[in-house]
């Protein structure tokens, strides 16, 4: 299972800005993602995690360095790499079924077959009943399921997910985590999952890349060695979550200092609440 799928070599990306220094979104990223791996990019906003995803998707281009998929450099978007965005981006002028069929018809799949495959995937995300509904009739979680079905029906090798559950409520998100884990287990796709939610990353991923800012890039890598299907209460996960939080706090402090000036100090432990710091003081 450790066959390299996506390889990043010295990937660098900077954005030109009028009248000031170019912003370095990604600096010297070296990374190998294996086939069938579920990898999360975790970090505060502005750390280049979405930029990295967009480059793999072919929607953006790196300034220098190389990225290869199966040994081939990326040339623009392709239907072997499908993106699921934070907002579902369903086309409101099409029915749910037509939305899912959209990509298949571009691939020149015959209409009848496309319909069949789209229905199959809609059923897999438990929305078979809503095939003829219009997108506005669905809830946020349902829309996101359709978006996932629309991506997976294309049978891409790589699924790119850009904070796909960030706009959903906690309960819906937990349900979708389970569903995504099952779908991933069944299809064995390589998944790159961008998020700023530590718990989400810990529950879903094989590997977590913690990203840093200014310059953007990979700060550290965590392997998640917990059995699947995952439980949020698993001690390995809880432990890992707090380890990541410590590193993330350092990163946050850096950003806050830059935004508020150098006299700002994010007190250690203040994020974890006062009840903890109170412990033992009465003994």
């Amino acid at each position: 299972m450790s066959e390299p799928h996506i390889v990043f070599q010295d990937v660098h990306k900077s954005f030109e800005q009028k009248g000031s220094q170019p912003v370095i979104a990604l600096d010297q990223v070296n990374l190998t993602i294996n086939k069938g791996e579920f990898i999360s990019l975790l970090g505060p906003s502005g750390c280049g995690k979405s930029t990295l995803l967009n480059i793999v998707a072919g929607l953006d281009k790196q300034t220098s360095g190389s990225i290869t998929v199966n040994g081939q450099p990326i040339k623009g978007p392709g239907n072997d790499r499908i993106v699921v965005f934070q907002e579902s981006g369903l086309f409101p002028w099409m029915s749910v079924l037509d939305n899912v069929m959209y990509g298949l018809l571009i691939k020149k799949v015959p209409k009848e077959e496309a319909k069949e495959r789209a229905m199959k995937w809609l059923q897999k995300v438990h929305l078979g009943k809503f095939a003829n509904a219009q997108p506005h009739e669905l809830s946020g979680g349902m829309k996101q399921r359709v978006a996932i079905a629309r991506a997976l029906v294309m049978d891409p090798e790589i699924l790119l997910m850009d904070e796909p559950f960030a706009a959903l409520d906690e309960q819906t998100r937990m349900v979708l985590h389970k569903e995504l884990e099952e779908l991933w287990y069944e299809t064995k796709k390589t998944i790159i999952f961008v998020t700023h939610n530590i718990r989400e990353a810990v529950i879903l991923s094989d590997r977590i890349l913690l990203m840093k800012t200014r310059p953007g890039g990979v700060k550290s890598v965590f392997d998640v060695k917990a059995a699947r299907p995952r439980q949020a209460t698993d001690s390995v996960l809880v432990n890992l979550e707090s380890r990541i939080l410590v590193e993330l706090e350092q990163e946050m402090e850096k950003i806050l200092k830059e935004e508020f000036g150098h006299d700002y100090d994010l007190k250690k432990d203040s994020l974890r609440g006062d009840s903890d710091s109170h412990l033992g003081s009465d003994i």
Partner: peptide
């Protein structure tokens, strides 16, 4: 919408 369509090819 444009990005969704482009990623689908």
């Amino acid at each position: 919408h444009i990005r969704v369509a482009r990623t689908m090819g």
